[in-house]
Design a protein around this nucleic acid. Structure first.
Length: 113
DNA sequence: TGGGTGACCATAG
DNA sequence: ACTATGGCCACCC
């Protein structure tokens, strides 16, 4: 693994850790915040390794652009992601976040004021 | 060198 | 709501 990979991984994790409780964002927004050079696919790829990080990464707060819980199968159990989100006050129906826009958190807007 | 894949995204029909 | 297509970039054969 290149050091560059590690940097990119850490950047992804750092941004995810900044997501406030009860808010969510998507993979593309993170990719955009880190620079368009890296695609959103890489963010998802990085999240695949989030589980192995010592510092916790609230991966459940990252969903796809439609507010769907596409990453649920990568948690301990398929229900875990929804449980965590609901515990933070986010309602989910059929793997889709209700009022996704309302809970949406844009890194560029929130962090580059 | 090249093809398949992925926790994606945008657009089109 | 659905599929199809092209782009994205790093990984693994």
């Amino acid at each position: 693994m290149n050091p560059a990979h590690q940097d990119f991984f850490q950047n992804v994790y750092d941004v995810v850790r900044l997501i406030p409780k009860g808010r969510v964002t998507n993979y593309g927004a993170i990719a955009k915040y880190l620079g368009t050079a890296r695609s959103s696919r890489m963010v998802g790829w990085a999240m695949n390794a989030a589980h192995f990080q010592k510092k916790k990464v609230p991966a459940h707060r990252v969903v796809n652009r439609n507010g769907e819980l596409t990453g649920k199968h990568h948690f301990d159990t398929p229900f875990r992601m929804q449980e965590l989100l609901e515990k933070e006050g986010i309602k989910i129906k059929k793997d889709k976040i209700i009022d996704y826009k309302k809970h949406y958190w844009e890194p560029i807007q929130e962090l580059e004021l």
